[in-house]
Design a protein around this nucleic acid. Structure first.
Lengths: 251, 251
DNA sequence: CCCATTCCTAAACGGCGGGTCAGAAACTGC
DNA sequence: GCAGTTTCTGACCCGCCGTTTAGGAATGGG
């Protein structure tokens, strides 16, 4: 009995709201513009949501849920990998190593998946980064990033345990570099109409972070570098000056 | 003749405005709160500034000017270094190299200076990042970051020319990793009451970026590695899955 | 002490947009 | 059709600031 509700009103509202939030931020997005874009009147908005903020909160929740799901899947897959194939040893890094290739393939796929989630939510991410101050969502993006960064720290610790990465760098510093690159990637995505080539991005990023900037000819010969000695390691560049790390003391 | 203006009214307004912007963003900062914090009436604000936005614009201008000044100084110092001491060769990377130590010292000092500027303007940076959407300052921070990133690209190219960093990585990818770490550093600074140890941060960051994450024992022996050979270099991680870069195509 | 001048205050204005609600519209079953 | 019910509309109310402005306060010169 009675007039049935428009079945796609809600999803139309969500889509229009995302566009308005993306364009104007949470505060400046006008409810009337959102409803007008769906051919509805202002009052109709309140049939579906308490307020602008309530709608946006749902979007954020959805984003967080997707990230959490992905993280869980990721951890499980990685655990399976190592429990099936054990820790890495020196010869696993030899040219043509099948085991290394498998790990890389797994991780690249996972990274690409993460970028896909971010791509799908890029408008929400944009608003969280640029337009949330003074709203209830102020700082939410940094909570998310901090949590991701912490996950990277944990992941690094595990990879150290399995011999995949060197143990003499602090996991916190590694995580910051990795997350930093991700944040910039995220932000570049956000202002781009076409989806970039995620695999290429991930691969290139991993080469840089994996190998470092020092000229290869300057690297110490490959020996079982034990426990990094006392001497200052050294450093590198920045803005104007990337640099390489050298001065590695003899083991 | 006539009543003299309060000499510190303007600076008091700027200080109070920064605090309000920092706290509430550009849109939600109330002029009345700003003036009240200085013991002035709302109307007094307009004796000094056209509008809220005009005041904030001055802060941004100031920030950009400082960054530009620093950049110029930096370039000049680096040019002087190389024109006086020439390009790097293999033996400059040997343990105890005086020339390398000098370059590192120069660059670390410059990096710390950059962090000092950001520290001084951290409230403005915070607003630009988090609270500018829907205002005239929307995207300004990313313009600044993009420009800095481009400067890093140029710097990388020069350092390649002078043999300080390897030439087989794209400068763009390197710049993204470096800037990413800087952005996260900036953002961490922004929400911190006490000034962190900049030198320590820079040093640690440079070790990670300079050397990469691959286990040292897995690195190819140090030979005049010509044009990166065919074999996989190795790698490293990421979020959940550091990885390494491999699969490098034969040159 | 008075006046011209400049500074500053506080009240008022005005627009904008979130939220409300009385009633019109749409639909169903009879 | 008609009654009953639920959905939608759009005019309206209202508070919140940014901005204006009329006039009061402070000051210095004469």
């Amino acid at each position: 009995m009675a007039r049935p509700a428009d079945p796609n009103a809600k999803s139309a509202l969500v889509a229009a709201a995302r566009a308005q939030f993306r364009e104007h931020g949470i505060q400046r997005a006008r409810i009337e513009d959102i409803t007008a874009a769906c051919g509805l009147s202002k009052g109709a908005f309140y049939l579906h949501y308490e307020s602008k903020e309530a709608l946006f909160a749902e979007l954020v929740k959805d984003f967080e849920r997707r990230m959490d799901d992905m993280f869980e899947r990721r951890t499980a897959e990685e655990d399976a990998f190592f429990s099936k194939r054990g820790a890495f040893r020196s010869n696993d890094f030899a040219p043509g190593s099948e085991r290394l290739a498998a790990l890389l393939e797994l991780q690249t796929r996972q990274d690409v998946e993460a970028l896909e989630v971010m791509w799908a939510m890029r408008d929400v991410i944009h608003v969280l980064i640029n337009g949330s101050q003074g709203t209830a969502f102020d700082g939410v993006i940094w909570h998310i990033i901090d949590r991701e960064e912490h996950r990277v720290v944990v992941a690094c610790d595990r990879l150290k345990k399995f011999g995949v990465i060197r143990t003499d760098l602090s996991s916190e510093a590694i995580a910051m570099v990795l997350m930093g690159a991700w944040v910039l990637t995220m932000r570049k995505m956000v202002s781009r109409p076409e989806k970039p080539d995620f695999t290429a991005i991930i691969t290139e990023l991993n080469v840089v972070v994996g190998e470092g900037l020092s000229p290869l000819s300057a690297r110490p010969a490959a020996k079982p570098a034990r426990k990094s000695s006392s001497a200052p390691r050294v450093p590198v560049a920045r803005t104007r000056n990337p640099r390489s790390a050298r001065m590695r003391k003899a083991p």
